Simulated scan of single mutants.
Amino acid sequence: MSIIITGASGFVGQNLIKYLQEKGKTVYPLSLRDSKWINELPKEADALIHLAGKAHDTSNTSQEIEYFQVNRDLTIAIFEEFLKSEIRDFFYFSSVKAVADTTDGILVEDVNAKPFTPYGKSKLEAEQYILNKELPAGKRIFIIRPCMIHGPGNKGNLNLLYKIVEKGMPWPLASFENQRSFLSIDNLSFMVNSILDKRDIASGVYNFADDVPLSTNELIELIASVLKKKVKLWNVSKGLISTIVKVGDVLPLPLNSDRLKKLTESYVVSNAKIKRELGIQHLPISTQAGLKITIESFKQANS
């Protein structure tokens, strides 16, 4: 089976390529950095997995048009080439943020989309274009909406939490009660590979998430258990935290409004649809086991 992957040099791309190759598949990385990709795109393959995109910029320094040029316009261009080719399947890696920046309940695929950021809006417009096109017979399209992806080598908020616990610092946001979904890179790769192998899975939108959400406090406890450190959870008043993040929005402090939201908001994503299509009750790796793998990688990198 031959697979074309854009965004192959990124965290997801590198791990997915390795996983698919271990499953006996042939992978062709495709760079989209200049217009030559149109001539370099193979016209025949079993699947095209479009990972390349502009990620959400937490420093808020990116121009809004950049998101639409990359996440929408480039996706439309490569999707049009897919429609003209003999490639069978098209995977577009969107995001749960394409439909909901916040959620009070459990996020499912048919939610009424209300993205607030240029990142989410650009992803949604690409989704809408793909879903509104007539699909030639024999082809399938999959809109993949992953939640927060993690794994060895991936930085971000998990690494920030790791450093707090590693240094023996207290976690000052324990007063924020939340539940969050995570997605291990191994479960992501398993689901993509399973879709490729099962021809009876229908085209459509699929959330990708691990089976069980965790609170940030539970995540802190998990990190502490891996590091064999004492858990230090401090219930600092939310009012004081709000004052600190306002300063962080102006000065380069470790905590600002965007980071506070990511660390403390509830964001639970349902993976029931994809599991139903795959005919499974549980993903191969539990939420806790996947997070332990990621945490252990931080530990090894810092040893």
Rank of each mutant, 00 (worst) to 15 (best):
S184Y: 08
S122C: 08
F182C: 03
N132S: 15
V111T: 05
E134R: 14
E80H: 08
V111H: 02
F142M: 04
N132Q: 14
Q128E: 12
G168W: 12
S59K: 11
Y92R: 01
Y92Q: 00
D101H: 15
G156Y: 03
E127G: 05
I164D: 03
E125H: 06
P118G: 07
A174V: 02
K139W: 07
G168Q: 08
F90N: 04
A77K: 12
L161N: 09
I143P: 07
L173F: 13
F142L: 01
T103W: 15
S95H: 01
L74G: 09
E64D: 13
S95T: 12
A174Y: 02
R180I: 14
I76M: 09
F91P: 03
A126K: 09
F90K: 03
F68G: 09
P136H: 10
G138K: 02
P136E: 13
L160G: 05
V111Q: 02
G120I: 11
S59R: 04
G151V: 03
K114G: 00
I143Y: 09
N112V: 00
M148Y: 13
D89G: 00
H150K: 02
W171L: 10
I106V: 13
L158F: 14
L124T: 09
Q63H: 14
E166G: 00
Q128W: 01
Y162H: 13
L83Y: 09
I65V: 10
N71P: 05
A137P: 01
P136N: 10
K114T: 15
T102I: 10
M148S: 04
Q128A: 03
N159F: 15
L158I: 08
S94V: 09
F182K: 07
V70C: 04
K97M: 07
K133P: 03
S59V: 09
N60E: 13
K84M: 06
P118M: 10
Y67L: 14
G151L: 09
Y119S: 03
G153P: 11
